[in-house]
Design a protein around this nucleic acid. Structure first.
Lengths: 193, 193
DNA sequence: GCAGATTGTTGCCCAAACGGCAAAATGACC
DNA sequence: GGTCATTTTGCCGTTTGGGCAACAATCTGC
Protein backbone atom coordinates (compact mmCIF):
# COMPACT_ATOMS: atom_id res chain seq x y z
CA UNK A 1 0.00 0.00 0.00
CA UNK A 2 1.26 3.39 -0.99
CA UNK A 3 0.01 5.11 2.13
CA UNK A 4 2.32 3.02 4.23
CA UNK A 5 5.35 3.79 2.10
CA UNK A 6 4.77 7.52 2.40
CA UNK A 7 4.37 7.27 6.15
CA UNK A 8 7.60 5.34 6.45
CA UNK A 9 9.51 7.74 4.26
CA UNK A 10 8.33 10.66 6.37
CA UNK A 11 9.14 8.82 9.57
CA UNK A 12 12.57 7.94 8.32
CA UNK A 13 13.31 11.54 7.43
CA UNK A 14 12.09 12.74 10.81
CA UNK A 15 14.13 10.08 12.59
CA UNK A 16 17.29 11.02 10.71
CA UNK A 17 16.82 14.70 11.46
CA UNK A 18 16.18 13.97 15.11
CA UNK A 19 19.34 11.90 15.36
CA UNK A 20 21.37 14.56 13.59
CA UNK A 21 20.03 17.77 15.10
CA UNK A 22 17.95 16.76 18.06
CA UNK A 23 14.19 16.90 18.27
CA UNK A 24 14.14 20.67 18.60
CA UNK A 25 16.65 21.19 15.82
CA UNK A 26 14.19 20.97 12.97
CA UNK A 27 10.61 21.73 11.98
CA UNK A 28 8.10 19.79 9.95
CA UNK A 29 9.02 21.74 6.85
CA UNK A 30 12.51 20.26 7.07
CA UNK A 31 11.09 16.78 7.23
CA UNK A 32 8.85 17.10 4.22
CA UNK A 33 11.56 18.77 2.21
CA UNK A 34 13.91 15.89 2.92
CA UNK A 35 11.30 13.26 2.15
CA UNK A 36 9.93 15.08 -0.89
CA UNK A 37 6.37 15.61 0.22
CA UNK A 38 4.25 18.56 1.14
CA UNK A 39 3.52 19.77 4.62
CA UNK A 40 -0.11 19.00 4.18
CA UNK A 41 0.72 15.39 3.45
CA UNK A 42 2.72 15.11 6.64
CA UNK A 43 -0.35 16.21 8.56
CA UNK A 44 -2.34 13.48 6.85
CA UNK A 45 -0.07 10.88 8.36
CA UNK A 46 1.21 12.24 11.65
CA UNK A 47 -0.13 14.73 14.10
CA UNK A 48 3.31 16.08 14.97
CA UNK A 49 6.97 15.36 14.45
CA UNK A 50 7.14 13.40 17.67
CA UNK A 51 4.66 10.89 16.34
CA UNK A 52 6.69 10.47 13.18
CA UNK A 53 9.98 9.93 14.97
CA UNK A 54 8.51 7.45 17.43
CA UNK A 55 6.87 5.42 14.73
CA UNK A 56 10.18 4.06 13.47
CA UNK A 57 10.35 1.88 16.57
CA UNK A 58 7.43 -0.03 15.19
CA UNK A 59 9.42 -1.60 12.39
CA UNK A 60 10.22 -5.24 12.87
CA UNK A 61 7.22 -6.14 14.94
CA UNK A 62 5.46 -7.51 11.92
CA UNK A 63 8.28 -9.85 11.03
CA UNK A 64 8.51 -11.08 14.59
CA UNK A 65 4.86 -11.98 14.89
CA UNK A 66 4.81 -13.54 11.46
CA UNK A 67 7.64 -15.79 12.51
CA UNK A 68 5.63 -16.78 15.51
CA UNK A 69 2.64 -17.64 13.40
CA UNK A 70 4.76 -20.03 11.38
CA UNK A 71 5.88 -22.07 14.34
CA UNK A 72 4.47 -25.55 14.26
CA UNK A 73 1.70 -26.03 16.76
CA UNK A 74 3.30 -28.92 18.61
CA UNK A 75 5.98 -26.66 20.05
CA UNK A 76 4.93 -25.39 23.48
CA UNK A 77 3.78 -21.78 23.32
CA UNK A 78 6.38 -20.43 25.71
CA UNK A 79 9.18 -22.17 23.86
CA UNK A 80 7.99 -20.74 20.58
CA UNK A 81 7.83 -17.20 21.91
CA UNK A 82 11.18 -17.48 23.57
CA UNK A 83 12.81 -18.68 20.39
CA UNK A 84 11.21 -15.99 18.27
CA UNK A 85 12.26 -13.21 20.62
CA UNK A 86 15.81 -14.49 20.56
CA UNK A 87 15.89 -14.52 16.81
CA UNK A 88 13.93 -11.40 15.99
CA UNK A 89 14.76 -8.94 18.68
CA UNK A 90 18.19 -8.29 17.34
CA UNK A 91 20.36 -5.91 15.38
CA UNK A 92 18.42 -3.44 13.32
CA UNK A 93 15.15 -3.64 15.20
CA UNK A 94 16.63 -3.57 18.66
CA UNK A 95 19.09 -0.80 17.93
CA UNK A 96 16.37 1.39 16.47
CA UNK A 97 14.27 0.91 19.55
CA UNK A 98 17.18 1.79 21.73
CA UNK A 99 17.92 4.90 19.70
CA UNK A 100 14.33 6.05 19.95
CA UNK A 101 14.27 5.43 23.68
CA UNK A 102 17.52 7.30 24.02
CA UNK A 103 16.08 10.25 22.12
CA UNK A 104 13.00 10.23 24.31
CA UNK A 105 15.19 10.54 27.38
CA UNK A 106 16.76 13.65 25.96
CA UNK A 107 13.51 15.12 24.67
CA UNK A 108 10.65 14.24 27.00
CA UNK A 109 8.02 15.51 24.59
CA UNK A 110 8.80 12.37 22.62
CA UNK A 111 7.97 10.00 25.44
CA UNK A 112 4.21 9.81 25.06
CA UNK A 113 4.58 8.83 21.44
CA UNK A 114 7.19 6.22 22.16
CA UNK A 115 5.00 4.67 24.79
CA UNK A 116 2.12 4.78 22.39
CA UNK A 117 4.07 2.87 19.77
CA UNK A 118 5.15 0.29 22.32
CA UNK A 119 1.56 -0.10 23.36
CA UNK A 120 0.37 -0.59 19.83
CA UNK A 121 3.05 -3.18 19.23
CA UNK A 122 1.89 -5.02 22.28
CA UNK A 123 -1.73 -4.94 21.18
CA UNK A 124 -1.00 -6.18 17.71
CA UNK A 125 1.30 -8.92 18.87
CA UNK A 126 -1.13 -10.02 21.54
CA UNK A 127 -4.04 -10.12 19.18
CA UNK A 128 -2.24 -12.16 16.58
CA UNK A 129 -0.77 -14.42 19.21
CA UNK A 130 -4.22 -15.09 20.54
CA UNK A 131 -5.22 -16.39 17.15
CA UNK A 132 -2.17 -18.62 16.93
CA UNK A 133 -2.85 -20.14 20.33
CA UNK A 134 -6.62 -20.16 20.12
CA UNK A 135 -6.84 -23.93 19.87
CA UNK A 136 -4.62 -24.53 22.86
CA UNK A 137 -5.27 -21.79 25.38
CA UNK A 138 -8.26 -19.62 26.34
CA UNK A 139 -8.02 -15.92 25.39
CA UNK A 140 -7.83 -14.76 28.98
CA UNK A 141 -4.86 -16.97 29.65
CA UNK A 142 -3.04 -15.67 26.59
CA UNK A 143 -3.78 -12.07 27.58
CA UNK A 144 -2.33 -12.54 31.01
CA UNK A 145 0.67 -14.40 29.74
CA UNK A 146 1.32 -11.83 27.10
CA UNK A 147 0.78 -8.93 29.44
CA UNK A 148 3.32 -10.37 31.80
CA UNK A 149 5.75 -11.04 29.00
CA UNK A 150 5.35 -7.56 27.59
CA UNK A 151 5.93 -6.00 30.97
CA UNK A 152 9.13 -7.89 31.47
CA UNK A 153 10.49 -7.29 27.98
CA UNK A 154 9.76 -3.57 28.00
CA UNK A 155 11.28 -3.28 31.42
CA UNK A 156 14.39 -4.94 30.06
CA UNK A 157 14.58 -2.68 27.03
CA UNK A 158 14.52 0.39 29.20
CA UNK A 159 17.06 -1.20 31.47
CA UNK A 160 19.39 -1.94 28.59
CA UNK A 161 19.34 1.68 27.56
CA UNK A 162 20.22 2.73 31.08
CA UNK A 163 23.02 0.27 31.45
CA UNK A 164 24.67 0.57 28.12
CA UNK A 165 23.84 4.06 27.04
CA UNK A 166 27.03 5.89 27.92
CA UNK A 167 29.19 4.89 25.03
CA UNK A 168 28.92 1.65 23.23
CA UNK A 169 26.65 1.03 20.34
CA UNK A 170 28.75 -2.09 19.99
CA UNK A 171 26.82 -4.87 21.62
CA UNK A 172 23.43 -4.09 20.25
CA UNK A 173 22.38 -7.27 18.47
CA UNK A 174 21.97 -10.65 20.00
CA UNK A 175 23.75 -9.22 22.97
CA UNK A 176 24.70 -11.47 25.80
CA UNK A 177 22.88 -9.38 28.35
CA UNK A 178 19.63 -9.44 26.51
CA UNK A 179 19.74 -13.18 25.92
CA UNK A 180 20.55 -13.81 29.53
CA UNK A 181 17.75 -11.57 30.60
CA UNK A 182 15.34 -13.42 28.37
CA UNK A 183 16.30 -16.68 30.00
CA UNK A 184 15.59 -15.36 33.45
CA UNK A 185 12.33 -13.79 32.36
CA UNK A 186 11.10 -17.02 30.85
CA UNK A 187 12.15 -18.98 33.86
CA UNK A 188 9.83 -16.85 35.98
CA UNK A 189 7.15 -16.98 33.35
CA UNK A 190 7.25 -20.76 33.53
CA UNK A 191 7.49 -21.33 37.21
CA UNK A 192 6.50 -18.11 38.92
CA UNK A 193 8.11 -15.70 41.30
CA UNK B 1 3.62 22.84 46.44
CA UNK B 2 1.59 25.36 44.55
CA UNK B 3 2.75 24.26 41.17
CA UNK B 4 1.14 20.90 41.65
CA UNK B 5 -2.17 22.37 42.71
CA UNK B 6 -2.35 24.52 39.60
CA UNK B 7 -1.55 21.58 37.40
CA UNK B 8 -4.28 19.52 39.01
CA UNK B 9 -6.85 22.29 38.74
CA UNK B 10 -6.10 22.68 35.06
CA UNK B 11 -6.21 18.95 34.52
CA UNK B 12 -9.51 18.69 36.33
CA UNK B 13 -11.03 21.44 34.22
CA UNK B 14 -9.78 19.82 31.02
CA UNK B 15 -11.08 16.43 32.15
CA UNK B 16 -14.52 17.82 32.92
CA UNK B 17 -14.73 19.57 29.59
CA UNK B 18 -13.64 16.45 27.76
CA UNK B 19 -16.28 14.39 29.50
CA UNK B 20 -18.96 16.97 28.79
CA UNK B 21 -18.15 18.04 25.25
CA UNK B 22 -15.66 15.54 23.91
CA UNK B 23 -12.00 16.20 23.31
CA UNK B 24 -12.65 18.27 20.21
CA UNK B 25 -15.46 20.24 21.82
CA UNK B 26 -13.30 22.74 23.57
CA UNK B 27 -10.05 24.68 23.27
CA UNK B 28 -7.39 25.56 25.80
CA UNK B 29 -8.99 28.94 26.35
CA UNK B 30 -12.07 27.18 27.68
CA UNK B 31 -9.95 25.21 30.11
CA UNK B 32 -8.11 28.16 31.55
CA UNK B 33 -11.28 30.18 31.81
CA UNK B 34 -12.91 27.43 33.82
CA UNK B 35 -9.91 26.95 36.05
CA UNK B 36 -9.22 30.64 36.43
CA UNK B 37 -5.75 30.82 34.96
CA UNK B 38 -4.20 32.34 31.89
CA UNK B 39 -3.46 30.56 28.68
CA UNK B 40 0.21 31.12 29.15
CA UNK B 41 0.09 29.33 32.48
CA UNK B 42 -1.51 26.31 30.89
CA UNK B 43 1.43 26.10 28.52
CA UNK B 44 3.76 26.19 31.50
CA UNK B 45 2.23 22.96 32.76
CA UNK B 46 1.01 20.99 29.79
CA UNK B 47 2.04 20.85 26.18
CA UNK B 48 -1.51 20.34 24.95
CA UNK B 49 -4.98 19.60 26.20
CA UNK B 50 -4.49 15.89 25.66
CA UNK B 51 -1.68 15.87 28.19
CA UNK B 52 -3.86 17.65 30.72
CA UNK B 53 -6.79 15.30 30.32
CA UNK B 54 -4.67 12.18 30.52
CA UNK B 55 -2.89 13.34 33.63
CA UNK B 56 -5.97 12.86 35.80
CA UNK B 57 -5.47 9.11 35.52
CA UNK B 58 -2.35 9.57 37.57
CA UNK B 59 -4.23 10.41 40.72
CA UNK B 60 -4.33 7.68 43.29
CA UNK B 61 -1.03 6.09 42.43
CA UNK B 62 0.67 7.93 45.21
CA UNK B 63 -1.73 6.66 47.84
CA UNK B 64 -1.43 3.12 46.54
CA UNK B 65 2.33 3.02 46.73
CA UNK B 66 2.38 4.74 50.09
CA UNK B 67 0.10 2.05 51.41
CA UNK B 68 2.52 -0.52 50.11
CA UNK B 69 5.40 1.14 51.84
CA UNK B 70 3.59 0.85 55.14
CA UNK B 71 3.11 -2.87 54.93
CA UNK B 72 5.13 -4.67 57.55
CA UNK B 73 8.14 -6.39 56.10
CA UNK B 74 7.27 -9.86 57.30
CA UNK B 75 4.36 -10.09 54.90
CA UNK B 76 5.45 -11.78 51.67
CA UNK B 77 5.89 -9.25 48.87
CA UNK B 78 3.32 -10.75 46.57
CA UNK B 79 0.73 -10.90 49.32
CA UNK B 80 1.32 -7.28 50.17
CA UNK B 81 0.95 -6.11 46.59
CA UNK B 82 -2.12 -8.20 46.09
CA UNK B 83 -3.77 -6.75 49.16
CA UNK B 84 -2.89 -3.18 48.27
CA UNK B 85 -4.22 -3.52 44.74
CA UNK B 86 -7.46 -4.91 46.09
CA UNK B 87 -7.86 -2.03 48.48
CA UNK B 88 -6.57 0.86 46.42
CA UNK B 89 -7.58 0.11 42.91
CA UNK B 90 -11.18 0.91 43.57
CA UNK B 91 -13.92 3.47 43.20
CA UNK B 92 -12.61 6.91 42.43
CA UNK B 93 -9.23 5.91 41.07
CA UNK B 94 -10.40 3.00 39.00
CA UNK B 95 -13.39 4.80 37.54
CA UNK B 96 -11.27 7.75 36.52
CA UNK B 97 -8.86 5.47 34.77
CA UNK B 98 -11.67 3.78 32.97
CA UNK B 99 -13.17 7.09 31.93
CA UNK B 100 -9.85 8.27 30.57
CA UNK B 101 -9.36 5.04 28.67
CA UNK B 102 -12.86 5.30 27.33
CA UNK B 103 -12.18 8.84 26.13
CA UNK B 104 -8.97 7.71 24.47
CA UNK B 105 -10.91 5.13 22.48
CA UNK B 106 -13.16 7.82 21.17
CA UNK B 107 -10.39 10.33 20.54
CA UNK B 108 -7.22 8.55 19.47
CA UNK B 109 -5.12 11.66 19.77
CA UNK B 110 -5.44 11.13 23.50
CA UNK B 111 -3.92 7.66 23.45
CA UNK B 112 -0.24 8.55 23.50
CA UNK B 113 -0.75 10.68 26.56
CA UNK B 114 -2.73 8.03 28.36
CA UNK B 115 -0.05 5.47 27.67
CA UNK B 116 2.52 7.93 28.85
CA UNK B 117 0.75 8.41 32.15
CA UNK B 118 0.40 4.68 32.63
CA UNK B 119 4.06 4.30 31.94
CA UNK B 120 5.02 6.97 34.44
CA UNK B 121 2.84 5.35 37.05
CA UNK B 122 4.57 2.09 36.43
CA UNK B 123 8.00 3.65 36.71
CA UNK B 124 7.23 5.45 39.93
CA UNK B 125 5.59 2.47 41.52
CA UNK B 126 8.39 0.19 40.47
CA UNK B 127 11.06 2.48 41.76
CA UNK B 128 9.47 2.91 45.15
CA UNK B 129 8.65 -0.76 45.36
CA UNK B 130 12.27 -1.56 44.72
CA UNK B 131 13.21 0.46 47.78
CA UNK B 132 10.62 -1.29 49.90
CA UNK B 133 11.83 -4.70 48.88
CA UNK B 134 15.50 -3.87 48.70
CA UNK B 135 16.39 -5.92 51.74
CA UNK B 136 14.58 -8.99 50.54
CA UNK B 137 14.93 -9.17 46.77
CA UNK B 138 17.52 -8.05 44.22
CA UNK B 139 16.52 -5.11 41.98
CA UNK B 140 16.42 -7.21 38.84
CA UNK B 141 13.99 -9.60 40.41
CA UNK B 142 11.69 -6.78 41.48
CA UNK B 143 11.84 -5.23 38.02
CA UNK B 144 10.81 -8.44 36.36
CA UNK B 145 8.11 -9.13 38.88
CA UNK B 146 6.77 -5.66 38.61
CA UNK B 147 6.96 -5.62 34.84
CA UNK B 148 4.94 -8.79 34.70
CA UNK B 149 2.45 -7.47 37.19
CA UNK B 150 2.07 -4.21 35.35
CA UNK B 151 1.52 -5.98 32.07
CA UNK B 152 -1.22 -8.10 33.52
CA UNK B 153 -2.96 -5.29 35.36
CA UNK B 154 -2.94 -2.92 32.41
CA UNK B 155 -4.18 -5.67 30.18
CA UNK B 156 -7.03 -6.20 32.61
CA UNK B 157 -7.90 -2.50 32.79
CA UNK B 158 -8.22 -2.32 29.04
CA UNK B 159 -10.21 -5.50 29.09
CA UNK B 160 -12.61 -4.14 31.64
CA UNK B 161 -13.30 -1.13 29.49
CA UNK B 162 -14.00 -3.37 26.54
CA UNK B 163 -16.31 -5.64 28.41
CA UNK B 164 -18.23 -3.14 30.40
CA UNK B 165 -18.14 -0.07 28.27
CA UNK B 166 -21.53 -0.28 26.59
CA UNK B 167 -23.67 1.05 29.35
CA UNK B 168 -22.97 0.56 32.96
CA UNK B 169 -20.93 2.86 35.05
CA UNK B 170 -22.49 0.91 37.87
CA UNK B 171 -19.98 -1.71 38.86
CA UNK B 172 -16.90 0.45 38.94
CA UNK B 173 -15.43 0.00 42.39
CA UNK B 174 -14.20 -3.17 43.97
CA UNK B 175 -15.97 -4.91 41.19
CA UNK B 176 -16.29 -8.63 41.25
CA UNK B 177 -14.68 -9.06 37.88
CA UNK B 178 -11.63 -7.10 38.79
CA UNK B 179 -11.09 -8.93 42.04
CA UNK B 180 -11.48 -12.26 40.34
CA UNK B 181 -9.07 -11.23 37.68
CA UNK B 182 -6.54 -10.18 40.28
CA UNK B 183 -6.73 -13.59 41.87
CA UNK B 184 -6.01 -15.34 38.61
CA UNK B 185 -3.19 -12.95 37.80
CA UNK B 186 -1.51 -13.51 41.12
CA UNK B 187 -1.93 -17.23 40.84
CA UNK B 188 0.14 -17.13 37.67
CA UNK B 189 2.56 -14.68 39.20
CA UNK B 190 3.17 -17.14 42.00
CA UNK B 191 3.36 -20.39 40.16
CA UNK B 192 3.88 -19.57 36.51
CA UNK B 193 2.09 -20.26 33.27
C1' DG C 1 -7.94 0.79 -23.92
C1' DC C 2 -11.55 3.26 -21.37
C1' DA C 3 -14.96 5.44 -17.97
C1' DG C 4 -15.65 5.30 -13.12
C1' DA C 5 -14.45 4.61 -8.43
C1' DT C 6 -11.16 4.66 -4.88
C1' DT C 7 -7.15 6.44 -2.69
C1' DG C 8 -3.34 9.54 -1.98
C1' DT C 9 -1.40 14.28 -2.45
C1' DT C 10 -1.42 19.24 -2.52
C1' DG C 11 -2.54 24.35 -1.91
C1' DC C 12 -5.18 27.52 0.42
C1' DC C 13 -6.14 29.45 4.70
C1' DC C 14 -7.15 30.53 9.43
C1' DA C 15 -7.90 29.23 14.12
C1' DA C 16 -5.14 27.22 17.52
C1' DA C 17 -1.13 26.33 20.02
C1' DC C 18 4.00 26.68 21.30
C1' DG C 19 7.33 28.96 23.59
C1' DG C 20 10.96 32.92 24.62
C1' DC C 21 11.17 36.83 27.23
C1' DA C 22 10.51 40.11 30.76
C1' DA C 23 7.31 42.19 33.86
C1' DA C 24 4.19 41.53 37.62
C1' DA C 25 2.32 38.88 41.30
C1' DT C 26 2.47 35.68 45.04
C1' DG C 27 4.52 33.73 49.15
C1' DA C 28 7.99 32.11 52.36
C1' DC C 29 11.24 33.61 55.55
C1' DC C 30 13.77 36.74 58.38
C1' DG D 1 8.75 46.30 56.74
C1' DG D 2 12.50 43.91 53.16
C1' DT D 3 14.64 40.19 50.26
C1' DC D 4 14.63 36.17 47.54
C1' DA D 5 12.56 32.22 45.04
C1' DT D 6 8.75 30.55 42.69
C1' DT D 7 4.78 31.11 39.88
C1' DT D 8 1.76 33.55 36.87
C1' DT D 9 0.86 36.62 33.15
C1' DG D 10 0.94 39.56 28.75
C1' DC D 11 3.07 40.30 24.58
C1' DC D 12 4.02 38.44 20.21
C1' DG D 13 6.21 36.12 16.39
C1' DT D 14 6.62 31.33 14.67
C1' DT D 15 4.79 26.88 13.97
C1' DT D 16 1.11 23.65 13.78
C1' DG D 17 -3.51 21.39 12.90
C1' DG D 18 -6.94 20.32 10.03
C1' DG D 19 -11.31 21.36 6.94
C1' DC D 20 -12.10 21.83 2.26
C1' DA D 21 -11.76 21.25 -2.58
C1' DA D 22 -9.00 20.46 -6.49
C1' DC D 23 -5.80 17.46 -8.48
C1' DA D 24 -3.13 13.21 -9.53
C1' DA D 25 -2.42 8.47 -9.31
C1' DT D 26 -3.93 3.81 -8.92
C1' DC D 27 -7.18 0.28 -9.21
C1' DT D 28 -11.61 -1.68 -11.04
C1' DG D 29 -14.65 -4.24 -14.39
C1' DC D 30 -15.82 -4.09 -19.06
Amino acid sequence: MKREATAQALAEAAFDLAKARGLDGFVIDDVVERAGYSRRTFANHYSCKEAAVASVAYSGIDAAVSALEDVSSDVPLLDAIHAVLRLQLTTETLSRMREVIRLSREFPSLEPYVHHVQHRMRLEAEQRLRLVAADRYPPTYVSLLFGALYGMVSSALEGLVDVRLPGDTSSGPGSLEFDQFLDVAFKHLRSGF
